[in-house]
């Protein structure tokens, strides 16, 4: 009797662990719907408008205005991944990546020291787990570039390898050979 109870306990524990593992896996793969899908819609539309405004400012050659718009975007608010899934995190990385790229390419406009840009990249990357996407890869590559500028080659290599790893994962997915 007690042996049977023990077996049932093991089975139940296995089921619970399996379910938990599946939940974590689905969550990491962004297969679980956001608790607030409307938040993701609002974010997508807002970012589309803002990025198009930046496109227009760049078309006009107004780099300062483009940087200002992206800085305003950076200040948020950004929804939490729990509300809007990892897609929101990827879109945030896109905005940060665009801002840092622009600042690196135009150091003469509203100059910001490299260590401040590194902080900006770290702030963008944050602690949120996100599925592989090109925007996060770009942000890691920018981090590498900034470390390299600072003469921190070991850190730069690490960041570049992270960017490479994400892009390689994306390529394998496109080629149908990866999860």
């Amino acid at each position: 009797m007690s042996r049977r109870l023990g077996q049932l306990g093991t089975l139940a524990a296995g089921m619970v662990l399996g379910a938990a593992g599946m939940f974590v896996g689905l969550a990491q793969a962004d297969r679980i719907a956001p608790s607030r899908p409307d938040v993701l819609v609002a974010l997508g539309q807002r970012l589309d408008v803002e990025h198009r405004a930046v496109d227009l400012q760049l078309e006009k050659g107004d780099i300062a205005a483009a940087i200002e718009s992206l800085e305003a975007l950076r200040s948020g608010p950004w929804p939490s991944p729990a509300d809007a899934t990892g897609a929101a995190v990827a879109l945030k990385h896109d905005a940060y990546g665009r801002l840092v790229r622009l600042r690196l390419d135009h150091p003469e406009v509203d100059p910001v020291p490299t260590d401040a840009l590194l902080k900006m990249v770290d702030e963008g990357l944050g602690e949120d787990e996100v599925d592989a996407n090109p925007f996060t890869a770009r942000l890691w590559a920018l981090r590498g570039e900034l470390y390299e500028t600072e003469g921190l080659d070991d850190e730069a290599l690490e960041a570049y390898e992270k960017a490479l790893e994400i892009n390689a994962t994306l390529l394998e997915r496109e080629l149908g050979g990866a999860p």
Binding site: A33, P34, P37, D38, L40, V41, L43, G44, Q45, L47, D48, H51, A84, A87, A88, A90, L91, D94, R98, P134, F135
Partner: peptide, 17 residues
């Protein structure tokens, strides 16, 4: 690429809504 991503996010959000 950015436009596609944003449209994808919006479309995904609309579907989820």
């Amino acid at each position: 690429m950015r436009g596609d991503a944003l449209r994808f996010a919006c479309a995904m959000g609309v579907l989820l809504v």
